[in-house]
Simulated scan of single mutants.
Amino acid sequence: MTSESETTNAYFVSDLHLFSNRSTGDLILPELRDRVRQTHTVVLGGDIFDFKWSTHESDERSVEKAVEWIEDLLEQNANCEYHYILGNHDSRPEFVEQLDALASRHPNFTRHRYFARLDNCLFLHGDVADGPLDHARLDSRRQKFERKKKKTGLWHVAYDMAIHARLHRLVVLSIREMKVLRRINAYVERIGHGLDDGVTDVYFGHTHVDLDGIQYQGLCFHNGGAAIRGMKFRIVETTLSAPATVRA
């Protein structure tokens, strides 16, 4: 952070699960565009798109529409810095290639595989909480997830019934928040971006549980929930310098 920088609001958005017929992500697009036009930094925290449950006719069409969606967002504010962090639902190799192509065309767009450190804030998807904390095993889990065939037909009907019965909510709430925070806290220490390294706030998604500034082990954790029918969701506001200092 430099003396010339100005500290203003920035935004973190995760788990829109666009293309799934359970997503309510399209409903928040007007609000998201409005926020983008007023800010200098937006972090997209993974699972913005859901290729596994996409209703598009092919993976190629899903990737095409995802790129169009991102380019539309970029057009809202050419002076905004955009950071895209991969999640387990949107780390498909052909999509990652397109993200890298976007980054080559737009200097204000950056793709991150695991996390983004901006000023005193750490942003990640959160699927690291599902298993071992090293990146090699995280990659392995994501690859196994992406190799699963796109769900179609009766699978969608069955999952819709589960959402309607709030079974999804019950599964999410069965995840102990303290266990998630403990694992993510261990991860941020492991990668060298914990409390002792100047981080004060951690922003993550994946768990679909809305956390509004929960204090744990000296850090403040934030999660905006998920844009899925029957679940809480919000665009998470944070404070970053303009421009934010990016640390690897």
Rank of each mutant, 00 (worst) to 15 (best):
G25T: 01
G225N: 08
L44W: 06
R183E: 12
L138P: 01
E146C: 09
E60L: 11
I228M: 08
L86T: 15
E60Y: 08
L29S: 01
I228L: 12
F49W: 02
G131A: 10
L102N: 11
H56T: 15
R33S: 11
V199R: 09
K232L: 04
V13I: 03
L16S: 03
D119W: 06
N120E: 13
L99W: 01
H168G: 03
F145K: 01
T41E: 08
L86Q: 05
S104Q: 10
L138R: 13
H208E: 08
R111C: 06
G213L: 09
I228D: 01
N120T: 15
L18W: 01
R33Q: 10
F123E: 05
K148T: 04
D130A: 09
R117P: 09
D201V: 01
E237R: 15
M231V: 12
E71C: 11
I175D: 06
F109Y: 02
I28A: 02
D127W: 04
I175P: 01
R61L: 11
H164Q: 14
E64Y: 03
Y11T: 07
V67E: 11
V42L: 02
R147S: 09
R247C: 08
D72Q: 13
H164G: 13
R111T: 12
K65G: 02
R234S: 13
V157Y: 14
L74C: 01
R92L: 09
R137Y: 10
D127C: 03
V13D: 07
R190M: 15
A66N: 09
L170D: 11
Q76H: 11
G224W: 02
W155H: 14
I163K: 11
S104N: 14
R142L: 10
I214K: 15
I235F: 03
A248S: 04
I48H: 05
D34V: 08
L219H: 02
R142Q: 14
A186E: 15
L102H: 05
L18Y: 05
A248D: 09
E177K: 03
I214M: 13
G205T: 00
L173H: 12
E81K: 13
H208N: 07
F123H: 00
D130L: 06
V13A: 04
L122N: 00
L181F: 02
V157I: 07
Q76M: 13
K65L: 09
D134F: 05
V246P: 05
D26T: 11
A242P: 02
F233W: 11
M161R: 14
R247Q: 12
G230Y: 02
A10D: 09
E64S: 04
A129F: 00
V157D: 03
D50E: 05
A248V: 09
V180C: 08
R166Y: 12
E94S: 08
C121G: 04
Y187E: 05
R169Q: 14
W155Q: 14
T239P: 00
V209L: 13
G213E: 13
I184A: 08
G194P: 10
D160S: 15
S5P: 03
L99S: 00
Y159V: 13
V180H: 06
F49V: 01
M1Y: 07
A66P: 07
H17S: 00
K149V: 11
Y203G: 12
E6M: 15
N9Y: 07
A78V: 04
Q215G: 13
H208F: 07
D47Y: 04
L86V: 04
F233L: 07
